[in-house]
Design a binder for these strands. Structure first.
Length: 946
RNA sequence: GCAGGGGUUCCAGAGCCUGGAAAAUGGGCGGGACUUAAGAUCCCGCGGCCUAGCGCCUUCGAGGGUUCAAAUCCCUCCCCCUGCACCA
């Protein structure tokens, strides 16, 4: 009978979800297991990469359920942040790219073009985006057979959820985990808002970063004003020889925080956005500064000179000059010296000629004047050779930063390495009030709206401070107790924890929960999703009892989650029945903590770390998470999936394209958790063949079972097959307990299939029928977590009661595991391989084979000798041939017990004859008259063909 | 740059923690069986050399070390992948 896999999947999905097969209630009689996978973000459809993660989760969940745990695996939706809003904004604005993308997405679910059009149009309302995609994602999850509890759904935009997150942030505030401080960020001038990578043109392919310049103040002689230069190398302040200005650029005179500064015009605007109070007084041409004398931060006198490389858009618009170590500065001076006209025009010839580069850093491989050397080496002709100069600058900077030492003229910093001294130099300059931070972008950037992106400073930014007193210790304590798989990621967590410092946790835009004590801030979307697993345990009852958001006050959650207060007092404060409160508290206490959370490796640095920290902040150790399992990403035919490549497989197409069970089997088998999975259609098709073969075999086994003899046939083959099967049950259970799905597939699927192939050649019809009856049902259950649909069907057809998904996980029948039988059969197989090999080698056409087994005397002598010797050289044996054989195979033989070789081969004679096409005779060396009998060794019989 | 992971056969990928016949398993390829044929399925083979024999040699990114013994432990070097903060 053929199996219609698609119909089977439909049938069982219908039954599971209509019969609410996976919606558990607390049950004190059973051990609970609370399992979670992070909820998906609903700004679009999910793809096969998400499918990998959720599928692994489902296999684990189904296994635990069959093991007898009361298993809860709920699901909800994440809508917080900017993406959903951005989608709506683009659709509303008629953005063609967005329209096309979303028509594609919707088109995978809806056939009718008009319906698609209508739905996509409705996305101008963010709520519709969320409604549509969350319902479709549920369909996708169902189409893959995930055993989810769908009765606890919510979104992070729900009012009840907001109250929950508010409660969490009140806790943070009280514990002193929230801080406020100024914070530099990328900012779009025309949006007047922060700009993330997604908001910036080419932000994904050519990322923009912030960098911190040090602005240095140079007093203008004869004025109460400063020319402000800026640098990324403040340690070179000891080598300043002059100032550069771009003569063809307009500068401004402005009051900055009460002082008078000269900077470029763009610089003045940036300073204003970087938390300085700025008032522009007048515009001044750059030319006007040439020849002026300044007093440097170190008190030396320097002259302002013209240089065209100075860029008004970069930092403050003035550049001080360190010709000994800055290739640009050196070349600009060199150009100037040659430029008689300019020297004359501004009357600066004397000043220019007086300039001598001041060396201050010595680094290996360079002499006194590294900038001069590198310009000569790279054959740089003048200051206009930007690419070469940029390269020279980068090279020299790197060298001096890591290997350079500050010279004697560097005051208190003399003799120190740059990478260690740099921060101290900055602090020293700031203390002298001659330096300030100036933030700049790493490249010129534009917002998608067309506005310029610059570096700005956000005042009073809210931070979560992971270094707040004692928090890190608690988090490390929690991590220490957690089981993490694959285990090598534990180390990574430790490193991340050490590195975590302050993280901005609120923003000025996007969907989400407002900070309860500062309503203009929205809690950032990763910070609002750290302890929500607890919310699953209470939302169902909150809804059932019709609690209003305003009733979910701090006291409510304090009682429910922390057991603070009494039901009676809290009931009064919140207007909720004491019995209801107690019931909700009870459910929380039943399910919590989260026993296992499974997700992708990519979340280690953010979500998963925050998840651990947040739990230790809010809950006691009893309710800290217990375990994490992680899987790597997925690529398609060796290439990363991306919309632009058009190689994305969306979740909703999997069932139709491959079938849910096949997909589940394939992703489980194709890679270990810790490796990147290469999703290849070819491999999938190959897996399909094995899968179909298995399903048909199980059907056959079910049929065979009916003809099974009552009594177990006395046969090594049967014992061998039963032993193999029990070994597989044992190994599969162990593999699943360790979340090692690949080993589970290997053991329960591939190696058992191979074993059956061998067994079916090796056995009689009666023997097959007997074994079939013994293993058919348990084999179905063994694979049920992985390919549940077909297993339900086979289970039903074999007369199983209820859902296979609810059946008990097969117990190992250890008494059937007979290693000596497996060893004997392996021996038979090895002899058979030799037999075949010899048959091929001989020139004559043989019809008969005599297998001669090594004598008892040899076997005894061998085991005695092996016992005494620690290495091959120490073997004491009189028989020279045996000695040679023993020393060659020393380590292998040492691990083997004596074996009834004769018995094993004797009962396999018929099999050996049939398979080899030879008439096989087995005899002992002692009884043999063959000349070659002496060649027979223990475990290695001599074979004579005739 | 910092942090983490990795380099095993034609391909994917186990083995490494805990040293003891390297290459499980899947794919692919070649040969055979079964078929009118194809497909599916089953069997055999796929580093090299030799053989009335069941053997020998080579090999785990490169080089060195420890050890009776190294893919595995230690050191140096080369190459690849991932993450790096307001982005979910």
């Amino acid at each position: 009978m053929a199996l219609d896999f698609r119909a089977i999947e439909d049938k069982w999905q219908r039954r599971w979800y209509s019969e609410k097969a996976f919606e558990p209630a607390p049950d004190e009689r059973k051990p609970k297991f609370f399992f979670t996978v992070p909820y998906p973000y609903v700004s679009g459809t999910l793809h096969v990469g998400h499918g990998r993660t959720y599928t692994y989760g489902d296999v684990i969940a189904r296994f635990k359920r069959m093991q007898g745990f009361n298993l809860l695996w709920p699901m909800a939706f994440h809508i917080t942040g900017t993406p959903v809003l951005a989608v709506s904004a683009k659709i509303a604005a008629g953005d063609l790219e967005a329209l096309k993308l979303y028509k594609d997405y919707v088109g995978t679910y809806e056939k009718d073009a008009k319906t698609v059009e209508k739905i996509v149009k409705s996305f101008a309302d963010p709520k519709k985006v969320v409604e549509y995609f969350s319902s479709k994602i549920i369909e996708d999850f169902k189409s893959l057979g995930y055993s989810l509890d769908l009765s606890r759904q919510f979104t992070t935009g729900d009012r009840e959820y907001n109250k929950f997150v508010e409660w969490q942030f009140h806790k943070y505030k009280k514990k002193g985990y929230l801080k406020q401080a100024a914070y530099p960020l990328l900012y779009c001038k025309s949006c007047a808002n922060a700009a993330g990578e997604d908001d910036i043109q080419d932000g994904d392919t050519n990322p923009v970063d912030l960098q911190t310049f040090i602005a240095l103040k140079f007093k203008v002689e004869g004025e109460n004003a400063f020319i402000v230069s800026s640098t990324l190398r403040p340690e070179t302040v000891f080598g300043i020889t002059n100032m550069f200005v771009n003569p063809s650029v307009e500068y401004v005179k402005a009051t900055v925080d009460g002082e008078t500064w000269y900077v470029s015009q763009p610089a003045a605007e940036k300073l204003a956005l970087q938390n300085h109070s700025v008032r522009v007084l007048e515009k001044i041409s750059g030319e006007k500064f040439i020849g002026k004398t300044l007093v440097s931060p170190l008190g030396t006198k320097v002259t302002v000179l013209p240089a065209s490389f100075v860029d008004p858009e970069n930092a403050s618009g003035f550049v001080h000059s360190v010709p000994a170590h800055a290739p640009y500065d050196w070349m600009a001076l060199a150009d100037l010296k040659k430029d008689e006209k300019t020297l004359q025009k501004y009357g600066i010839a004397e000043a220019v000629n007086a300039i001598k580069p001041i060396p201050l850093i010595s680094s290996p491989g360079y002499g006194e004047l590294p900038a001069v050397e590198i310009c000569e080496r790279m054959k740089i002709a003048n200051a206009r050779e930007k690419p070469k100069l940029d390269k020279a600058t980068a090279e020299l900077y790197k060298k001096e930063f890591y290997e350079g030492t500050l010279g004697r003229n560097c005051g208190e910093f003399a003799g120190r390495k740059i990478d260690e001294a740099k921060d101290d130099v900055i602090a020293w300059l700031k203390k002298k009030k001659v330096a300030a931070d100036f933030y700049e972008t790493t490249r010129p950037a534009k917002c998608r709206c067309g506005g310029q992106v610059i570096a700005a400073v956000m005042e009073n930014q809210w931070f979560i401070d992971f270094n707040a007193h004692g928090w890190k210790d608690r988090a490390n304590d929690c991590l220490e107790r957690m089981f993490i798989f694959p285990s090598n990621y534990k180390k990574q967590f430790e490193d991340i924890f050490a590195w975590l410092d302050k993280r901005p946790c609120a923003r000025r835009r996007g969907l989400g929960t407002q900070l309860p004590f500062a309503n203009e801030w929205i809690i950032e979307s990763l910070s609002d999703s750290t302890i929500y697993m607890a919310f699953y345990t209470v939302i169902k009852q909150i809804r059932r009892f019709g609690l209003k958001p305003e009733q979910l006050r701090e006291e409510f959650f304090d009682f429910v989650f922390l057991g603070e207060g009494t039901a009676e007092t809290v009931a009064k404060t919140c207007g909720v029945q004491p019995l209801v409160l107690k019931s909700i508290r009870k459910e929380f206490e039943y399910w919590y903590p989260n026993d296992l959370r499974h997700t992708a490796v990519a979340h280690i640095t953010n979500h998963l770390s925050f998840f651990i920290f947040a739990h230790t902040a809010v809950f006691g150790p009893k309710h800290w998470p217990r375990a994490l399992s992680l899987n790597e990403m997925l690529v398609r035919e060796g290439a990363k999936m991306s919309k632009s490549k058009g190689n994305v497989i969306i979740l909703s197409s999997i069932k139709e394209k491959y079938g849910a069970d096949l997909f589940r089997l394939y992703v489980s088998a194709a890679a270990e958790f810790g490796s990147v999975l290469d999703f290849r259609d070819r491999d999938l098709e190959a897996t399909r063949r094995s899968f179909v073969k298995w399903a048909e075999l199980v059907l056959l086994l079910t049929e065979l079972s009916e003809k099974a003899p009552k009594k177990q046939p006395d046969s090594i083959a049967v014992k061998w097959m039963l032993s193999k099967f029990e070994t597989s049950v044992l190994e599969s259970t162990k593999a699943l307990e360790e979340f090692s799905l690949r080993n589970y597939v290997q053991s329960s699927f591939y190696s058992l299939l191979n074993a059956w192939d061998y067994f079916s050649r090796r056995s009689t019809e009666d023997e097959k029928a007997f074994v079939a009856k013994e293993i058919a049902e348990r084999w179905i259950l063994l694979l049920c977590p992985m390919v549940p649909h077909v297993c339900e069907e086979l289970w039903e057809q074999s007369g199983g009661k209820g859902f296979a998904s609810h059946a008990a996980w097969p117990e190992v029948r250890e008494e059937r595991i007979a290693l000596e039988i497996e060893e004997a059969e392996d021996y038979v197989a090895a002899v058979f391989a030799d037999l075949r090999k010899v048959k091929e080698l001989v020139k004559i056409k043989a019809t008969k084979a005599t297998v001669i087994i090594g004598s008892k005397a040899k076997a005894d002598a061998l085991s005695k000798a092996l016992e005494k010797a620690a290495k091959p050289e120490e073997l004491v044996l009189t028989d020279e041939a045996l000695k040679q054989y023993a020393s060659r195979n020393f380590f292998e033989l040492r691990g083997r017990k004596q074996l009834d070789e004769f018995g094993a081969l004797k009962q396999a004679t018929a099999f050996l004859s049939k398979e080899s096409g030879l008439e096989v005779k087995v005899e002992r060396e002692e009884d043999s008259v063959e000349e070659k009998r002496v060649r027979a060794m223990p475990f290695k019989p001599s074979i004579v063909l005739a």
